[in-house]
Design a protein around this nucleic acid. Structure first.
Lengths: 224, 224
DNA sequence: GAATAAATAGTACGACCGTGCTATCTATTC
DNA sequence: GAATAGATAGCACGGTCGTACTATTTATTC
């Protein structure tokens, strides 16, 4: 017990470094969600965290790696704040609904101060070629694939009409999520998220109702 | 014929300046639509146009004015490429549809190489405060107001059900337009625009159909 | 043709960028 | 307690940024 106490027993110095690393990435995510990953700067991070430029730099050894790791860190936040709660619902339509709601809630709670990190990333790197663009393509593909998978399951279970086009419905759901994010940040007003909820509800209702209504060919029943 | 020839007779120097000014702004719009207005740089413009930095600078006398004028120039493109053709349709639902189609066509044609200039601007300046943010708020307000006005007219004419919430429907239409833009740039594949068309069609059909169905389906929002 | 004014180039300055190299401090290990 | 190794700081470099200030060129005007 003369040695460092049990809670800090494994290499104080080592853990200090890891802690700083995390703090840097946390700040990097916040800054990037507001101003974009492109205008994320090592000097700016150093100022923000009261570190020296070289102190920050040493943790990543290149700006590209800083960007990579920032994206990876944001992916973990997204997983924890959206995917985990969103997918924690009974298989099928319920899980699809729950995932959309998890996203909207994540926007509403302002998990990132500049709105969804990946919506920012999508808009920033949709056009400029490079490794980040490729990463974004991959991430988007994954997100849409997840939606399509859930839709597929809901169809198999008869909770969505079998004539539903999974890719189209994924698009129809994704669109209001994305717009709710942008607009709720633009006007500093999370009320817009409610528009997204309404849109999601209407779309899902419409996609689910058709089976029962097949002969009547009902459209989307509700607004508001 | 010793004098400048007839085609260049009116103030060569004067018109040279105006011409250069236009060229700078044209390049600025292209660059900004791809990489963002924030990373638009005077030196970069100069290189791109084979001018000196100071030559470019002289046309604007500050970066802020360059940004302002770039936005204004893009507004004019948007007006010419979207608003004019979009609003050139019979009043009412037809005009609303036509406007959405005009936007999708503008995305499909790749009028800006990085996708819709204003979608880029929205994502880039939704969070960071400043004069550009304020300008974007204004532009978005105008766009949504336009959609809502057209919806209102269509309702008055009985082409959309009177129970339709204009703000909500404007959101529902805007969302797929925006997503179609981002995704069509991300994958270099204008096919995605077709997803947007389908979404718009479904939403408008749904909003228009209810009136005829009032008795059968319950014209008012049927909440389950 | 001299004067004028507009368009463009040249040069310089301070700020910040990413990154390399070296020094300092401190916890762990022998 | 000397050696080690990891975390951080300091400093220097070349590059680009926005922006002044000063030429230079050229078309128009007198």
């Amino acid at each position: 017990m003369a040695k460092p106490d049990d809670r800090t027993v494994r290499t104080r110095r080592r853990s200090d470094g890891a802690r700083t690393h995390e703090q840097i990435l946390a700040t990097a995510m916040e800054l990037a969600s507001v101003e974009g990953l492109g205008s994320l700067t090592i000097g700016r991070l150093a100022r923000e965290l009261d570190l020296s430029k070289s102190g920050v730099f040493a943790h990543f050894r290149s700006k590209a790696r800083l960007q990579q790791q920032t994206i990876e860190a944001a992916r973990e936040v997204f997983e924890r704040e959206v995917l985990e709660p969103g997918l924690d619902a009974p298989d099928g339509l319920a899980r699809l609904e729950s995932l959309c709601e998890a996203y909207l809630s994540y926007v509403e709670r302002g998990v990132f101060p500049g709105g969804c990190f990946f919506a920012q990333l999508l808009a920033e790197f949709d056009a400029p070629r490079g490794p980040i663009h490729d990463e974004v393509v991959e991430l988007q593909r994954g997100w849409l694939a997840l939606l399509e998978r859930l839709i597929g399951t809901a169809k198999e279970r008869g909770e969505l009409d079998s004539s539903v086009d999974a890719q189209q419905l994924a698009f129809d759901l994704y669109a209001p999520l994305e717009l709710a994010n942008y607009l709720s940040v633009l006007r500093r007003d999370p009320t817009v998220v409610e528009r997204g909820r309404t849109a999601i509800r209407a779309t899902l209702t419409s996609a689910g109702r058709r089976e029962g209504d097949r002969n009547r060919l009902g459209g989307r029943p509700t607004k508001e």
